[in-house]
Amino acid sequence: MALDRSEDTEFVKFWNSVLEPKFTKYRHILQGGLSRHSAAVLPKLPIEAGMAVLDVGCGWGDLSLQIAERVGPEGRVVGIDCVEAFLKEARADAKEAGFANVEFRRGDAEIALPENEFDYVVSRFGTMFFTNPVAALRRMRLALKPGGQMTHIVWRRREDNPAWQTAKDIALRHLPPPGEDADTCGPGPFSMGNPEMVETMMKSAGYEDVSFTRVDEKIMVGTTPDECIAFALAIGPAGEVFREAGEELAEAKRADIEDEMRRFFESQERNEAGIWVPTSSWVISARNPA
């Protein structure tokens, strides 16, 4: 039975139609890279056996499954994402791994979340795409029981993330910046890079005890320079510049862009797995008032 997507926002439609195939193609890069940041903090989070945990923007569900193992059979995990294709893979992986305590639901955290139901809420690189971040963060807080906790991971400043920003800088040397009416995945990957601004957002959404922890990790952005270039032009800030320039102009400039990107990626650390470029994130934790 086909899903009823008649009430999807333009943002959700864009993710399901334009971005999903690209993200799925490069799942091995995206999931591998993002997981390095969550792996650096997950063991330290006060998530205990028996807890109910909500994973907002769960994607393919790898973090949800890790948390499901942590909370055990007496606990439960709900993963929510707006992209049905991601959830299909997440459900298959959960079934294959034998997890009976995790559920994946299609939903938009900016519109609706369960209320007063969870001990902990997590989100890995999802909240910075909220078009109305304070309202969405408030919905995440309201999903918590009184005294419950939340942790979300976001990218730090663009200059701290050459894995994403350098490719965009290269693209912008050859192509115009996207216009104000460009189709995008949201405010952008660095929209929560300023801790003072995000702390204000969090407090406006009703959280207490807001804290920031910095994580620096090199991530694999491709197995070869050619794959690095293809990945950069498909997903993320450089991909947006390339897409919004229009096919005729983008293709006319492709060779120059690819030559410059190849020089950059060839200058980075490389091992048998692929090419590794620095990234940096904030791990932001807070509490719902008791």
Rank of each mutant, 00 (worst) to 15 (best):
M1Q: 10
A2T: 03
E7Y: 05
T9N: 03
F14N: 11
N16W: 00
L19H: 10
E20L: 11
P21S: 06
F23E: 12
L42C: 14
M51G: 02
V56S: 13
C58T: 11
E69R: 08
G72K: 03
P73M: 07
V77Q: 03
G79L: 02
G79D: 01
A85P: 13
A90D: 06
A94R: 11
K95L: 13
G98L: 02
G107Y: 01
D108L: 02
A109R: 04
I111D: 15
P114F: 14
S123E: 08
F130V: 02
P133I: 01
M140Y: 10
L144Q: 00
V154H: 12
W155M: 08
W155I: 03
E159D: 15
D160T: 00
T166A: 09
A167T: 00
A167L: 02
I170P: 00
A171P: 02
L172Y: 08
H174T: 02
G179A: 05
A182R: 05
G186W: 06
G188S: 11
P189E: 10
S191E: 12
G193C: 11
P195Q: 06
E196S: 09
T200R: 15
M202H: 10
M202S: 04
K203F: 04
A205W: 05
Y207W: 12
D209M: 01
S211K: 12
F212L: 01
K218G: 13
M220S: 15
T224V: 08
E227P: 14
A232W: 06
A232T: 08
A238I: 00
V241P: 03
A245K: 04
G246P: 13
G246D: 04
E251R: 14
E260S: 06
F265N: 01
S267W: 10
Q268K: 13
I275F: 07
W276H: 14
V277K: 07
V283K: 12
N288H: 15
